[in-house]
């Protein structure tokens, strides 16, 4: 009896969480002759034609490619750059280490929205407005990731590295061969979050990009909605294109994710 109650409650929340996505998917496969306003989750005559049609009105695959490029670069720069800085903060002794730590910590406190306009001026000064490089750069090595990886490196036992020092390994070798492989769990979380953050980002690309062929998916979709709102099937197809890769990626990595999040919170 208790189990029945538990599962009914779980199923109710499940419906609330993914129902809206299912409705959007149902809309995206409804044919041109079917009334999209009728609350019918299973179309009479399902078609994937809308996915092809949406590409005729906006270059949705170009948007997707732009998003993919931006997100992939963001993952690489964050994993590598943040790991390097985190390693130096955790494992190398030098003058100015505290200062470097304070710079990273204080930049976490700056809300992005507060520097939005000023950051745009920096990009314009660098001649990088309306470029995908300009989209990537500000978040390319997030201070939060630096501190996350610093904590992960701090948790590693020191003995292994001390042995490597005696064997004559330099700092870079110890970093790439010993330290980096030991923080794989944290790296997966950093990679997943970097991809998600970049793929989902809206405000910054909206401000920095102006040409349609440079658009990422998020601003491309907002544009699609503004222009072609009368055909809801196309907007729905566009949103499914934007959300499906992330859902697949998350399903693939979800074990690491829930474990990594748990670890982080406990050690926090």
């Amino acid at each position: 009896m208790k189990l029945v109650l538990r599962y009914s409650a779980l199923l109710a929340i499940l419906a609330i969480s993914i129902g809206p996505f299912l409705w959007q998917f149902a809309t995206s496969i409804k044919g041109p002759n079917e009334d999209v306003f009728v609350p019918d989750f299973i179309p009479d005559d399902p078609t994937f034609g809308n996915y092809a049609a949406v590409a005729d009105v906006v270059p949705v695959w170009t948007f997707a490619l732009n998003s993919l490029g931006v997100a992939s670069v963001n993952v690489i720069t964050n994993c590598l750059g943040a790991a390097m800085a985190g390693y130096a903060l955790a494992r190398l002794k030098f003058r100015g280490r505290k200062l470097a730590g304070v710079i990273f910590a204080s930049s976490i406190l700056v809300p992005f929205e507060a520097i939005l306009i000023s950051l745009f001026l920096v990009m314009r000064g660098l001649g990088l407005t309306n470029t995908l490089t300009g989209v990537v750069l500000p978040g390319s090595i997030a201070a939060l990731n630096v501190l996350l990886l610093r904590n992960a490196f701090l948790a590693l036992p020191a003995e292994v590295e001390e042995a490597a020092v005696i064997d004559g390994a330099n700092a870079w070798q110890r970093f790439t061969r010993l330290a980096l492989p030991s923080v794989k769990g944290t790296l997966v979380v950093v990679a997943l979050f970097s991809f998600m953050f970049s793929w989902d980002d809206f405000l910054w690309p909206l401000v920095v990009l102006s040409d349609q062929e440079k658009y990422t998916l998020t601003i491309g979709l907002a544009y699609l909605q503004g222009t072609f709102v009368q055909n809801q099937r196309l907007v729905a197809a566009g949103t499914i294109i934007a959300v499906l890769p992330l859902i697949l990626l998350f399903l693939l990595l979800q074990k690491h994710f829930f474990r990594g999040v748990g670890e982080g919170a406990i050690k926090g």
């Binding site: 720069t77 750059g81 943040a82 390097m84 800085a85 390693y87 130096a88 903060l89 190398l92 470097a100 710079i103 990273f104 204080s106 930049s107 700056v110 520097i115 000023s118 950051l119 001026l121 920096v122 750069l137 500000p138 390319s140 090595i141 201070a143 630096v146 700092a171 970093f175």
Partner: peptide, 16 residues
């Protein structure tokens, strides 16, 4: 090791 991280942090957060 710190250069890329500090450069991004200072140029795109602290300075703005």
């Amino acid at each position: 090791f710190l250069l890329p991280g500090l450069a991004v942090c200072i140029m795109f957060t602290i300075f703005p």
